[in-house]
Nucleic acid binder design. Structure first.
Lengths: 207, 207, 207, 207
DNA sequence: GATGAATGAGACTTCATTCAT
DNA sequence: GATGAATGAAGTCTCATTCAT
């Protein structure tokens, strides 16, 4: 009957996230993890098969949760019938919602993006999957608003990638690498919202 | 200045770049590097003090060269007096020039961004320095064109970061991770140029 | 005398024999034994002090039973007064009885001879004791039949050892390592009987 | 240029044989071997890939040498045309030659038979190969002398196995486990020769 | 300058044994 | 008596670095 069982596993997971975040995958030793978790070396292997497996297990699980939450954030929040102001407001909510989500999983995102991106095929696959998910949402929005009507598939991809890059980079720089407050996130999101608005929907209204 | 045996050093550097790129820092052994370079194990230590030092020495040197080249690409190519079309053309040339530059140093950029970003403070410092350099160039341009007059320093930074993110992401996805041809780069640059134009200078012309 | 829970102990012993036989001493883990026995890890230590102790306890106990049975098989079955045919018949019965006995304890003999012979002083002692027992029986028979009258003690030992070797080897090869049927054992015993007869009693009749 | 190279390997092999012989495979640690060889732990892995590989490499190589030498010892030494005395003399020479050979490789035979027989498929295969080789030689001799004309293939095998067992057992008991002198080997071989003679060729002469 | 055998610290992992429940 | 999570000593193997030639 798993009683302390689950507790010990959680202690190990928390310790692992902390150590991986702080020192990266290779400079984190099992001995560091168990020391921080306050259990014996052997205990680690009751819950995880290898060092690699705890790493991928962490990022996989978090990633799934995040993709799910992202889907929810973007779901049907905007439509072409909305007024300019309402649109911007919704866009803003989506972007700041995304950033808050990343902040919530800050340590693991850090671990995944900064340390993990290169370590294993598995980690790379997970990161790519997350990107994929976002890209497809963005492209869907392009279509919904009939943006870039002259673009082919490749150009769509590039444009979506560019927008993804804007959000990723600002999110990384301010939310993950620095300690963005709620106000910071709000301010950042306003800037990014405006930029995205201007280069997409706003541009249409211009002429 | 062929001191020591400069040829041997170059062989080692080339082998190191290749192995680091292929397998990452931790999965590359000194024995792999010397084997590929065709020299003996001990020879490595005649030219480099440690494994870490060859890694950072590669990315530092390349980074300096790249920053210098980027400076050159951006230098005085655009000014507010230009016509819309000319501006776009210059912007396009700058962006595609940047992408070609990255492609030229593809292996090392890959190594730096994918494998190295997390390994050492040193590597992270170098990457940050490169970003810094680009950000300051972008901000300078904002000022030159009197863009975002209502923004404070923080918002400027965010906006610059966003633009940097656009370029970085598209560049990574298509130039570094996939094998972008000249045509690809041209097409990508057009898309990005248009987006940047729309969210900056173009927006001004609208009202 | 069902002390403790005798059933649990028997389950552990049976599981241990099976696992030791299949995988040898070192490649059998306590966890394998308890899993096969269907009890918890800690339960093992209620019945046995150490891994080594269950191993030696198995081979010791079986060995005692086997020595006792061998004594019984050989007891007074032959005498110099018998006719040639009767002698051969008795010899045959003894030998095939021995082989059947080994077959009956096949798993443990396998474990003792193949896996255990080298592991511990204790196991070696037990195996040696079994050999000793047989050798002394054989020498007693030599004396009873006034065989090898010119041999000294050492030569007696060697001759007995040789006969022991014949039986052991054929028994190992056909009964323990292969799956000898009743007919096989019968056939093997006939061959061995004839050989032993020819080199001992039979030889006397010749001149 | 392998100079100390080969010397170090030999030191490791000698140390390994000694330690394996003394303590068996599992109770010999790499650290024991390198300590005895007087080299560092890591040096071991310059010459052998794993602990298992040094073990099998030792027994395989020795085994090949021994099989070759055994073939030579048995080659055409006896023929049905010989006189009884000459035959016995040749048989004696063969058997004592065999025992001397085993004594020469005493440590490794010990390691192979006592410790190694069960450890790995590989070790078992090697031991079986050696037995096979001897059995086939013995059966060839049976045929050459038209012994046991009424025996089928199975009975031949059993008879050969029995003779193999005689030699193995006496050899193990006196040469490998005890320290048989030249005189001992001579005396043992006389006894075994006589027994084998009586149960094979001698038996024919009787009637 | 070049070599490559040797080094040894230290990592990951296993598993017999213990002990609180 | 039974459980099974926890322990930690100890083993195998790796690899950056050194150094005698």
């Amino acid at each position: 009957m798993p009683k302390d069982n689950e507790l010990t596993k959680q202690k190990l997971l928390a310790a692992a996230v902390e150590m991986f975040t702080e020192n990266g995958y290779y400079d984190t030793k099992i001995s560091d993890i168990v020391k921080k978790a306050g259990v014996a070396q052997g205990t680690f292997y009751l819950y995880f098969q290898t060092k690699e497996s705890i790493f991928t297990s962490i990022i996989k699980e978090t990633n799934e949760r995040m993709i799910h939450q992202i889907d929810h954030i973007f779901a049907d929040h905007v439509s072409p019938e909305m007024s300019e102001d309402e649109l911007k407001q919704r866009l803003y909510e989506t972007i700041s919602g995304c950033m808050s989500l990343y902040r919530e999983h800050k340590a693991i995102v850090y671990m995944m993006r900064i340390h993990g991106s290169s370590q294993f095929a598995e980690a790379q696959r997970v990161a790519a999957e997350c990107d994929e998910s976002l890209l497809s949402i963005i492209i869907k929005l392009f279509k919904k608003f009939h943006l870039f009507p002259e673009y082919d598939q490749f150009q769509y991809q590039v444009a979506a990638s560019a927008i993804n890059g804007m959000m990723n980079e600002t999110c990384m720089q301010y939310v993950i690498l620095r300690d963005a407050t709620d106000e910071d996130i709000s301010k950042i999101s306003r800037v990014v919202t405006q930029m995205i608005y201007d280069m997409t929907v706003g541009k249409e209204c211009k002429s």
